[in-house]
Design a protein around this nucleic acid. Structure first.
Lengths: 209, 209
DNA sequence: GTCTATACAGCGATAGAC
DNA sequence: GTCTATCGCTGTATAGAC
């Protein structure tokens, strides 16, 4: 809403969001302060309040931008990969890229702190998971229809299994600083969904370092 | 180390740990203060510092006690259930009981906040996951040997899949306040490990409310 | 073992100058 | 749009009386 992108300027609001986003993903929403952001950007706390009146507003903006970027990434996966199993691999790769930067999924982190968040942030966190679920459901239905995927329960339940497993794999792998631990979990999970007779899922990136 | 359990007294140190444990599991380690505990127990913050010199010490004691209790619960699962699939159901039920109280796994919560924790707490968190993994590995090997379980990769990788999926399922289900969401994920996960021909795993409690 | 009292740093937030 | 200055509150922690 603020952020006038003027000549040669990345936009202060955007730079604030960049720093804040990383801080939340690494330390949690209750683990950083306006002072942390201000110090890193070499501006004052008062300047931060100009762009985001309160921490709650900043938090809402963070989730909103993150969700938009995630939706774009999902659209990109759709564009790059046609096969359902390849799309699932692409989905797991999105998580992998975050973990590689030693970060937790923004909304996974906020899910842990959920009870301490202002309600608009709580609502936005649930919306994020809902959107993930919807996208996965569509991919799963598609894969089941063309015979490339197999799973027992509903597409919705399977989508929830995928989200839970990948979020949990990030949650646990990050303290170990062990990306392979995430990879192994993602592989096992997706292997259980691929139809045995189907062609090897081209492992777009989820297996290579 | 402190805590003299005298007549009719539950032990102040233990009561402090009870309150602190719940606060961490609900709000996170960075989401509560000594004042929160003091108010609830109707003692002063100074009294808290007598039992636990600093928040870091309190945190260490929390994980230590939690890990001990969890190990006891695993031994109890071993004692009650003999079949590997029943032991896995019992394991999932331990998570379920925590979620029913609207709480996150203590170490799952601390895993999210990992980067902000003092090192002794960090080490203790990893030990907790290692112990879970060791127990699960043993159950999985046992089940594979007697033919009641089937899985593709190593027992270690499968153990990690189980831990990740259940931790993630708690993480996501809790904000929704939806225990069934956790149940469905746990069911799908364990169903994928049970051998089709094997007898129905007596669903010790994981399906009933 | 618990209290009162307090120190002191950090927090989110605001007022008002430039 | 950013600054200086400051407010009021909460955070962890300590000293010393009882």
């Amino acid at each position: 809403m603020a952020a006038r992108v003027s000549a040669g300027d990345a936009g202060t609001a955007a730079r604030i969001l960049d720093v804040a986003e990383r801080l939340v993903q690494v330390r949690g929403f209750n683990g950083f302060s306006y002072a942390d952001i201000a110090t890193e950007l070499r501006i004052t706390k008062a300047a931060l309040h100009y762009h985001f009146a309160g921490k709650a507003d900043l938090g809402e903006a963070l989730i909103s931008r993150y969700a938009t970027r995630f939706a774009d990434a999902l659209a990109s996966v759709d564009a790059v990969a046609a096969a359902a199993s390849a799309r699932l691999s692409g989905y797991a790769d999105l998580y992998l890229q975050v973990l590689r930067n030693r970060k937790m999924c923004l909304c996974g982190m906020l899910a842990a702190e959920y009870q301490t968040l202002p309600q608009p942030m709580q609502d936005a966190v649930l919306r994020f998971f809902d959107e993930n679920e919807t996208w996965l459901e569509r991919v799963l239905e598609h894969g089941r229809a063309d015979g490339s995927l197999q799973f027992r329960g509903t597409a919705r339940d399977t989508a929830r299994l995928i989200i839970s497993s990948l979020e949990g794999a990030m949650l646990v792998a990050r303290p170990y600083g062990d990306v392979d631990r995430f990879q192994a979990v993602a592989q096992s999970l997706l292997a259980g969904l691929a139809r045995p007779s189907a062609a090897p899922p081209s492992r777009s990136a989820s297996a290579v370092a």
